[in-house]
Design a binder for these strands. Structure first.
Lengths: 329, 329
DNA sequence: CTGTTAGCGCGTTCAA
DNA sequence: TTGAACGCGCTAACAG
């Protein structure tokens, strides 16, 4: 492997001069700059980013921590988008990224995870799909040994930023559109897991809407499970005008239940995943730009790693109507 | 950040002694070993893996290159399983891994990609979803500058191993089971993309079966697209007894077509993705252990990085019958 | 504008 | 069995 030293010798300059050219420092004459570039080309020199990191003490790698839920495999699409957004942006900004699934961290204490991160020179962590019950991550967030960005969880402190759409408003918007289109009065709301961060926010959105439009609402927790939503719909949908679901997957479950019951009710979902198209019906849903959120998260983690304060970031959302043709064309 | 130097001072020994203890060298007295361990604990010392890599010149990171297709978003599940398998195993074996999407490499020449990999100290590459048309990757494979493991493509050379199930046999197996169950004679086979590596292998499996059971077969290319498969089924399914598809997604398209046509034909798929359950019907499909394949791929890349020769690895497959209840419970 | 020097944190001889 | 010394490839003062 050809090193900076050989380049320097070949170009007849000092090592540091080569380094300066490499890193675009000022105060280098056009003349020597070209000589160095020439030598680099001729020797096919490739800088060693590891050595550079060690020397500059600019470690600062970023861990992408993905908390995959067992039951919702079908929505891997969301995590894939998150990954794509983060990896693309990190590459663009020259940030080293380590992909980590929480399954790999199972059985480790907060301290062990900290040590692991540190040994990997990780100084920033982006968490996707954080659960309230994840004691270890909660502990890490409290200790503030790293810079954090938490996606879809409203945690903010000196070293932690939160990023997500406005779930309260989004749930309000999509339900309102669905309800007004069909002049509904009685709402069945199938919410997410009781301990989920976004669950409460979305319920608040629904309550605001119910008050505003003078509706009645029944709330049941479907735990983001298709089957649970299906059973809830089977039990309660008949007596209501519309079924609002806190996730696309639950909307699909509810829709299937309605088909089995042979009754029609408007249904709306939340996420905008491709899978929605496979049910063959059309539904309103909230579209989130997962790629963009994750891309933004990387920019934000960099800011915090550089000493910036944690803050809350709200991303825009939109309502889309998804149906079969949208998907397969 | 506490370094090895401080540990040495704290323990009253030399730096090299600490290093030896750390790396489990022999010829260290039990006495000093304990002293060092003690100091490590007290100072909460965390080894810096980057510096260790630089010093030992043991870089050897592994790139996971994921070639995501635009049209098949619904099967992100497969890539997620691949990722999980590779990441888990890499962590277990203490191999550094870099996750890369081919979209990040678009517009780069083979040489640029080589330089990029080298600057990242990447010496092994695992490729998922390789396309025959990917000139850059094909070039890299030819140049053999890195160790390679290619998943689902039959490429083997001195520095490249191939790993996959036996697609010929798997296609044969699942079709045979489906056909024998219903005593079919006329087969509609919806194959994958014409230039796909696995497409030919699976067609061979079908041909063998057709000969053996004295069937007639019509082959059409559905390009792994749900819509294309749907259209093919609409056009030809009526005149056949059974529809065999080279992917689950196409099986879903065919199944939906059959429902629209209001006729019944047994359908079988290939992949075993969760999504299969959402069509609400039961189908045979090939189940691949994506996690296990990827895990094995990491072991293999390590072997090749250590100088082993490329080889072909065949993983086992199985047939499963998937239906709604399997998925949501 | 350029070169010299001193590390970054660690692994690895080679003497002692 | 231990430790001093060197070097991995590079960056960052500082001096010239």
């Amino acid at each position: 492997m050809v090193s900076i030293k050989e380049v320097a010798r070949h170009a007849g300059v000092a090592i540091s001069t080569v380094s300066k050219v490499l890193n675009g420092y000022p105060n280098i004459s056009e003349d020597t700059r070209e000589k160095v570039q020439q030598a680099i080309k001729e020797l096919n020199y490739i800088p060693n980013s590891i050595a550079a990191a060690l020397s500059s003490k600019q470690f600062g790698r970023v861990a992408l921590v993905l908390n995959l839920e067992r039951q919702t495999q079908a929505i891997d699409q969301i995590f894939m988008q998150y990954l794509a957004g983060a990896l693309d942006t990190a590459r663009h900004r020259n940030i080293e990224v380590v992909t980590i699934f929480t399954t790999m961290l199972e059985g480790m204490s907060a301290e062990e995870v900290t040590r692991y991160f540190m040994s990997q020179s990780i100084s920033g962590v982006i968490i996707y799909g954080l659960s309230k019950e994840d004691k270890v991550m909660q502990q890490l967030l409290k200790e503030q040994n790293f810079a954090f960005v938490v996606v879809d969880a409203p945690i903010v402190n000196a070293r932690t930023s939160s990023i997500s759409i406005d779930h309260e408003q989004a749930q309000y918007d999509v339900a309102k559109k669905t309800i007004l289109d069909d002049k509904c009065k009685q709402v069945l709301y199938i919410a997410g897991r009781k301990d989920g961060y976004v669950t409460e926010q979305r319920i608040r959105g629904m309550k605001r809407l119910v008050e505003e439009l003078k509706l009645t609402m029944m709330v049941r927790h479907g735990d983001f499970s298709e089957l649970a939503a299906r059973n809830i719909a089977l039990e309660y949908a008949e007596d209501t005008d519309v079924v609002v679901c806190a996730s696309d997957l639950m909307a699909i479950g509810a829709m299937n239940a309605l088909i089995d019951m042979d009754i029609f009710r408007p249904v709306c979902g939340f996420d905008g995943i491709t899978l929605m198209g496979y049910v063959g019906k059309q539904m309103n849903t909230i579209r989130q730009d997962f790629y963009g959120i994750s891309s933004r998260a990387v920019e934000e983690i960099q800011r915090i790693m550089n000493g910036g304060d944690g803050q809350q970031i709200v991303m825009p959302h939109s309502i889309v109507k998804m149906y079969y043709q949208d998907i397969i064309c």
